[in-house]
């Protein structure tokens, strides 16, 4: 497309690349060409096939995708429960591939909190809500953890969290004495107990009706707004997806498209309205995934024609075959 570069051009380009900030330097969560391969019964499954994702600090975002697209795999990796096969993943400055067991433990204690879909599996059945919330603090065994004052501090924090999530009245109830929504809100409190930088939730509303789902989502928003915690939610729930400013879709183990929502004030009417705009992801190799609806609508297959214009790139169906005919 371009003419052959001169040597001077190349050295200049190399220097420019070196000085450029690293990929995702300003993000809290950075996934760079993340690959996870499962081997079960001798069969390899590529759950993640070079996934790229950046999440900034303080963001509240949603991950969507078909079942089996690799969402849970990604969440488990980010939670420090699973290790990627290849690629790079950093959360709050920690490299998830090279962490030692001890680092991993500290990471789980200090950096992430998570909530799973199955309400019953987020909480220990034989502990009350308050105890469930206090447990991660107890487990992390900070210095002076056994002293009276530390205990009081833990109890206070547990109650604060429960109150913030509006389940303070459940503090002495065990999970089987609470509704699913209450359980899930307590689970969020548990996840927040260690004061994590990131809160991960894998389909937290999956077992709940839509109304309760909304309440849960509100709880996440509260956590995000009041504690400043970065929140990543995997969801099937379109309503939830519509609530957040950024929704990333995963397809076949790769991020495919992204929807950003901005509220804009209409210049003419003065009304505030939410504008959603869909973007395709451009990876660092320059690859682009086109939404399936788009390609089928135009009958694009195998090859497309590209044209560089001053302010955009035009993608057209491959017309070379038609000319031949």
């Amino acid at each position: 497309m371009t003419s052959d570069p001169t040597l001077a051009d190349l050295t200049e380009r190399v220097a420019a690349r070196r000085d450029r900030p690293a990929y995702g330097h300003d993000a809290l969560i950075t996934c760079d060409r993340l690959v996870r391969v499962f081997t079960a019964d001798g069969v390899e499954v590529q759950a993640l096939q070079g996934l790229d994702l950046l999440v900034r600090e303080g963001e509240l975002m949603a991950l969507v995708g078909a079942s089996g697209s690799g969402k849970s795999t990604l969440m488990n990796i980010l939670a420090g429960l699973d290790t990627p096969t290849a690629g790079a993943a950093r959360v709050a400055g920690r490299d998830l591939l090279t962490m030692s067991a001890r680092d991993r433990l500290a990471y789980r204690r200090e950096v992430v909190g998570f909530v799973w879909q199955q309400t019953s599996r987020n909480l220990l059945p034989y502990l009350t809500s308050a105890q469930n919330v206090a447990l991660p603090m107890q487990l992390s065994g900070r210095p002076g953890g056994r002293s009276r004052s530390a205990r009081r501090a833990r109890a206070e924090r547990a109650l604060e969290l429960l109150e913030m999530l509006e389940v303070a009245d459940c503090r002495d109830r065990r999970p089987d004495e609470m509704s699913g929504g209450q359980q899930q809100r307590v689970a969020i409190a548990v996840a927040l107990a260690g004061d994590p930088a990131v809160l991960l939730a894998d389909e937290p509303t999956g077992e709940l009706d839509s109304h309760t789902g909304e309440q849960i989502f509100a709880a996440f928003r509260t956590a995000n707004e009041r504690l400043g915690t970065t929140v990543v939610i995997v969801t099937h729930d379109q309503a939830v997806a519509n609530e957040v400013s950024r929704t990333v879709a995963i397809r076949d183990g790769r991020t495919s498209t992204e929807v950003l929502r901005r509220s804009e004030v209409d210049a003419a009417t003065g009304d505030e309205k939410v504008v959603a705009r869909e973007y395709a992801m451009l990876d660092r190799a320059g690859r682009l995934q086109l939404p399936a609806e788009y390609t089928t609508a135009l009958g694009m297959r195998d090859r497309v024609a590209l044209e560089l214009e001053p302010d955009h790139i035009a993608v057209r169906p491959d017309d070379s075959g038609r000319e031949d005919r």
């Binding site: 059945p125 034989y126 009350t128 105890q131 547990a158 109650l159 504690l227």
Partner: peptide, 29 residues
Amino acid sequence: MTERPSGRPRTAASRVTVPWVRTRLRTAP
């Protein structure tokens, strides 16, 4: 960055801190 709501009644810390062994024994006698 943590905002702490205040003004809630104080609860005995012992009811929140988990007495592990006792709880377990009571759970699965």
